[in-house]
């Protein structure tokens, strides 16, 4: 894993950027008549799907962390490495 993955990411990200812009740019030219509210609300709902999936993941992780690693959790009885150093 280590080093090559980071290089891979540094290459992958610009590629994604290039691809998405080129693909959109060569799509059908602007000036076409569309129904504004349908396009805008469509984009909004797509955004909401993404926001709520990530939201569920992040809130799930936070809830797990808060519940699992709370002080009063019996599994947490032993003290972590950092403690006891005064």
């Amino acid at each position: 894993m280590g080093i090559p993955l980071r290089q891979a990411l540094l290459v992958a990200i610009p590629l994604v950027v290039m691809f998405s812009i080129l693909q959109a740019a060569f799509a059908q030219e602007a000036g076409k008549v569309i129904i504004n509210r349908v396009e805008v609300w469509g984009l909004f709902y797509k955004g909401m799907v993404i926001a709520f999936t990530i939201g569920a993941i992040v809130m799930g992780v936070i809830a797990y962390v808060v519940f699992r690693f709370r002080e009063s959790n019996p599994k947490n009885a032993s003290r972590t490495s950092m403690e006891g150093r005064h």
Partner: peptide
């Protein structure tokens, strides 16, 4: 990396819709 890729996707799709909203027929 995942966050950046997601933002690029969101930015590109917004760019794609705005193109039509900003250029009147």
């Amino acid at each position: 990396g995942v966050v950046v890729a997601l933002l690029i996707y969101i930015g590109a799709s917004a760019w794609d819709v705005e193109r039509f909203l900003d250029h009147p027929p």
